[in-house]
């Protein structure tokens, strides 16, 4: 048994290289966070993170990230459906564009969305007619986060839709179910785990997002100040304990989200494997 496991050469070498680089780049820096945290008192951490301004920033960050990810959940399912099920001109270009938020630097996305939605920009002017301000408000933050989160749900749902057996739908159709009923009763339950995985990944990414948000947010304390920006300003004032305490809250939140997402993902992986 053991022999068949290690027929391929190079286990020691590749494991060694992998662990050395991983240790230097990821583990040691993370360990220094743990060491630094261990030197702080629990009471101090609680005192730091319950300051009004910090709490307000948590509210802004989580609320805007949640709403943006919800929008992406709905749009992601629609986009995945359209890209998998329909044939139409320019479909491949549309499909390729989905990845843009991964490839475009966040700072470039940030200044572009800001100039489009400021009072003088194309959208700013249009929505200004209705008295709606986008840039430098929470709406602006949400717009930037929608941009950042677009690929996650689409890319999670697409493979599941591709593998979904059409025979269930046909059976339901033969039995006289309406198209909307087929979608909500047959297809949606199948793609829901994947869609929620995408939602979780987008949500996790959005609460930590910095570059695309700082320009459009306006960064008014209590109103449009996001948590990553607060960490940034604490760092600029050399207040490392305070920055670390706030970062811990963000880290715990993103690990909880990641954990929940992994649980859901395990279920959707079962569906994917079951068909092939």
């Amino acid at each position: 048994m053991k022999r068949s496991k290690r027929v391929i050469p190079g286990f020691g070498l590749s494991m060694g290289v992998t662990l050395s680089i991983l240790g230097l780049v990821v583990v040691i820096p993370l360990a220094s966070l743990v060491v630094f945290t261990a030197q702080m008192s629990f009471a101090d951490i609680i005192k730091t993170i319950t300051r009004d301004r910090i709490l307000a920033s948590f509210r802004v960050s989580f609320l805007t990230a949640f709403i943006a990810s919800l929008i992406n959940l709905v749009m992601g399912v629609i986009l995945a459906w359209v890209l998998v099920r329909y044939k139409f001109p320019f479909k491949r270009i549309l499909d390729g564009m989905i990845e843009l938020p991964f490839a475009l630097p966040t700072a470039v996305a940030g200044i572009t969305l800001t100039s489009l939605t400021a009072d003088t920009g194309l959208f700013g002017k249009f929505f200004g007619i209705f008295g709606v301000k986008i840039a430098y408000t929470r709406i602006g933050i949400t717009v930037a986060l929608v941009f950042i989160g677009i690929p996650f749900v689409v890319r999670a749902v697409q493979p599941v839709l591709e593998k979904l057996d059409a025979s269930y739908e046909e059976a339901a159709g033969v039995l006289g179910a309406s198209r909307s009923k087929i979608f909500f009763k047959v297809i949606l339950p199948e793609i829901m785990p994947a869609a929620l995985t995408g939602f979780g990944l987008a949500f996790g990414r959005c609460i930590g997002e910095y570059g695309s948000v700082v320009f459009i947010a306006g960064n008014k304390p209590f109103e449009t100040e996001i948590t990553p920006l607060i960490i940034m300003s604490e760092l600029q004032e050399y207040d490392y304990p305070s920055a670390t305490a706030i970062a811990l809250v963000m880290l715990i939140a993103s690990f909880v989200i990641l954990f929940a997402t992994n649980l859901i993902q395990a279920r959707s992986a079962k569906i994917l494997k079951g068909d092939s």
Binding site: P29, L33, Y210, L235, Y240, A247, M250, L251
Partner: peptide, 15 residues
């Protein structure tokens, strides 16, 4: 890729 870029910066400052 799961931690915020700001936190990534922070851990190197702490190190």
């Amino acid at each position: 890729v799961t931690v915020s870029p700001i936190i990534a910066g922070l851990i190197f400052v702490l190190t």
